[in-house]
């Protein structure tokens, strides 16, 4: 199996943004994403995950460099000013089976 060097974007955001984040990623050209529920604490307070308003999601996206850059700048632009958001990237090796990123 081949390895391909790609960018892993991790976005931790308020769960109400889930749908918009996923749509944004796909529109930028990402081939998919992974969602998980999570909770934690940051500058905007404890996000305990109990009420709808208090939930966080972790969206992970694997994408090529140029697609990753589009996703990052779009997320920054649209959501950063008003929402609790954590955003980071790593370069990782993805195992490529049938498709490449």
């Amino acid at each position: 199996m081949e390895k391909q060097s790609v960018i892993l974007i991790t976005i931790i955001a308020e769960s109400i943004l889930e749908e918009q984040l996923c749509k944004l990623a796909l529109e930028a050209g990402a081939s998919g994403y992974t969602i998980s529920e999570c909770s934690g604490c940051g500058k905007k307070g404890i996000r305990s995950g109990m009420m709808d308003m208090d939930k966080n999601v972790r969206v992970e996206i694997l994408a090529r460099q140029e697609i990753a850059e589009i996703i990052l700048s779009n997320v920054e632009q649209r959501f950063s000013p008003n929402y609790a958001l954590t955003l980071f990237t790593q370069t990782v090796n993805a195992l490529v089976h049938e498709h490449s990123y």
């Binding site: 009420m51 308003m53 929402y83």
Partner: peptide, 22 residues
């Protein structure tokens, strides 16, 4: 309302501070 309104307003009016209303 603390179920329907907070979620809807958070998306529709992002610049409003949700902790004030809640």
């Amino acid at each position: 309302s603390y179920i329907a309104a907070p979620a809807a307003m958070r998306v529709a009016v992002p610049s409003a501070n949700p902790s004030l209303s809640l």
